[in-house]
Design a protein around this nucleic acid. Sequence first.
DNA 1: AAAGAAAAGCAACGTAGTTGCAAAAGATTA
DNA 2: TAATCTTTTGCAACTACGTTGCTTTTCTTT
Lengths: 137, 137
Amino acid sequence: MQIDEILKTNQLSITDSRKKILGLFLNSDGALAHADIEKNAGEKFDRVTIYRTLQVFVDKGIIHTIPTPDNSIKYALCKDDCVEGHHHDHHVHFQCKQCGVTYCLDDVTTPDVKLPKGYAADQIEVVISGICKNCKQ
Amino acid sequence: MQIDEILKTNQLSITDSRKKILGLFLNSDGALAHADIEKNAGEKFDRVTIYRTLQVFVDKGIIHTIPTPDNSIKYALCKDDCVEGHHHDHHVHFQCKQCGVTYCLDDVTTPDVKLPKGYAADQIEVVISGICKNCKQ
DNA sequence: AAAGAAAAGCAACGTAGTTGCAAAAGATTA
DNA sequence: TAATCTTTTGCAACTACGTTGCTTTTCTTT
């Protein structure tokens, strides 16, 4: 089963909450906020457990955080080469103003930005907001 | 005096807290967080007043918010064509990992990003982190 | 200077996130 | 499979951040 394998690969013990939360990510189209998880997990897990589980997943490179314009954190699955202690998320994030869903646009890589002399870039976050393909008819 | 004029132009009554907080922005190189203001205002103003003042400044287009990777809000002066109810901040933000200062790179405009079919962009936020010109020797 | 309008301060509240610790569940070995 | 050790969970308590209602103070206008 995919979920258990992901957990094993990352040397995590297999627990109900981890299976449930990872399952939510695998079945979700967009990114999830802490509140989404709390809701969808069926009130079965403690808030603290969810916080800690998300933290572990981020540390292991299973999910990454997305800073949104309204300053709430969302989480989404890492696609490929993220490993423990180091994320490689070079894609653009899109937040729909209508439905509120945040998508990882995995095929859209972050652009190169020319910085003024003296500035050294390390990481670039691009968050675009607008109307998504599902809301635009 | 510049501060009073800015307030007048924006149809705001001139109060101690507004003058003080606006002064902090005018004298600051980088962006300011709520905590910075609370500290530098000399413990003279109530937390609530600072929150409300910042909100008013954002509404009037005097300052804009910057979403940082660590999910704290910072505020910085709007440069030119921001007016009440509508911001036009098309510049890139830079956060130094060493000194922690967040800069508005006013001369660096946000790049165009080609989105997949069906997505309509409305606003684009670019936050780059790395080492700033003052920390790099 | 007086009256009306706007803002500040205070107290109380709500929510988000963290920490320490005991109980429960998972992993490991025999 | 049972026993042991390790890890994780849940609970309680706490801190930090931000908000709201209301009274008092300050600004503005005449």
